[in-house]
């Protein structure tokens, strides 16, 4: 029995396998429509997140399985003060696999130790969000058919953006990758991401404050939302919220085959005028996320086609 709490829990070979499964599922969904018949997925969302929860549930339903769970802590025993360990131990008696989101960092580690069934981290505070990264990787793969040699720009909230940290961890394992971190001083990428992921592998990176100065060199532009709930101080949030907005004008110097990504939901950091640009891939990411979650559920349940 195995859980996935961090994207680096998966080897590069396993990522390749998941991508291959997802692509096969996209090509022939019928082949997969009954593979999880009789299996139950529990979605334990201690923090609201409609899209990630629905993505997991849609993935399981498309595999022929069933879903149960809760969508906020107030409708679970957590509201009565039950610990994560106890909640997941109980749910492990009902379900075959758990997808869990929790506002506290590391909560899925506790769940994985106690549940007795595989646990997938569906986001733990500002820490990790491995299945978003799976969606991101499939999106890059389907547009470029390689991960090697890409220059990846990440823009916005790089300090609290868990999707950013997970994607850096995943992409840093491929040869020839370069990173460009675009953020205000207050929301810079944490030093540990640089010292743990990039420096030991001598991966080139630079930190800048505007996207215009680096736009022509990017193969991927990963935009993020400045999330209000990650701030202790609301005044800081309001001051920084509108700092980095992508517009068609800023894209005039970008490569023709740039991939524009965003984990969604967006507030206003990508103008809706960019949505019709063929380089905008953020809604593809949503669909890709469902297929990669389905592939991961199959892998952890050891289900084969």
């Amino acid at each position: 029995m195995r859980s996935i709490l961090n994207i680096t829990d998966l080897s590069l070979e396993e990522l390749d396998q998941l991508i291959a499964t997802a692509e096969d599922m996209i090509a022939d969904p019928k082949k997969y429509s009954e593979v999880c018949r009789g299996k139950k997925l529990a979605t334990l969302f201690f923090e609201p997140s409609t899209r990630t929860r629905l993505s997991f549930e849609a993935a399981m339903l498309e595999l022929g399985g069933s879903v149960l769970g809760f969508s906020e802590a107030s409708s679970s025993s957590a509201a009565k003060g039950e610990s994560v360990a106890d909640t997941t131990r109980v749910v492990g008696c009902y379900a075959d696999i758990i997808a869990m989101r929790h506002p506290k960092e590391g909560a899925p580690v506790v769940a994985a130790r106690k549940a007795g069934v595989p646990v997938i981290n569906a986001g733990d505070g500002g820490h990790n969000h491995p299945t978003q990264t799976l969606a991101d990787l499939l999106t890059i793969w389907r547009n470029r058919h390689t991960f090697e040699g890409l220059t990846i720009g990440m823009c916005g909230d790089l300090k609290f953006g868990r999707t950013v940290h997970s994607l850096v961890g995943a992409m840093a394992r491929y040869a020839g990758v370069k990173f460009v971190f675009i953020s205000p001083e207050e929301l810079k990428i944490p030093q540990y991401v640089i010292t743990d992921e990039l420096e030991p592998r001598n991966i080139p990176y630079k930190e800048v404050t505007t996207m215009e100065e680096v736009m022509p060199e990017l193969d991927v532009l990963y935009m993020t939302r400045v999330q209000g709930e990650r701030f202790f101080n609301e005044a800081d949030y309001i001051r920084l919220r509108d700092t980095y907005i992508l517009t068609p004008e800023k894209l005039t110097t970008a490569k023709e085959d740039l991939i524009i990504m965003h984990p969604l939901p967006r507030v206003n950091e990508i103008s809706v005028k960019v949505d019709d640009d063929p380089r905008a891939c953020y809604f593809q990411q949503v669909l890709n996320g469902k297929f990669m979650r389905a592939a991961l559920i199959m892998k952890l349940l050891e289900v084969n086609v």
Binding site: P103, K104, E105, A107, V109, V110, G125, H127
Partner: peptide, 9 residues
């Protein structure tokens, strides 16, 4: 880390 699960459990 005030956001760590150990801060509440």
């Amino acid at each position: 880390n005030p956001r760590c699960i150990t801060s509440v459990e």
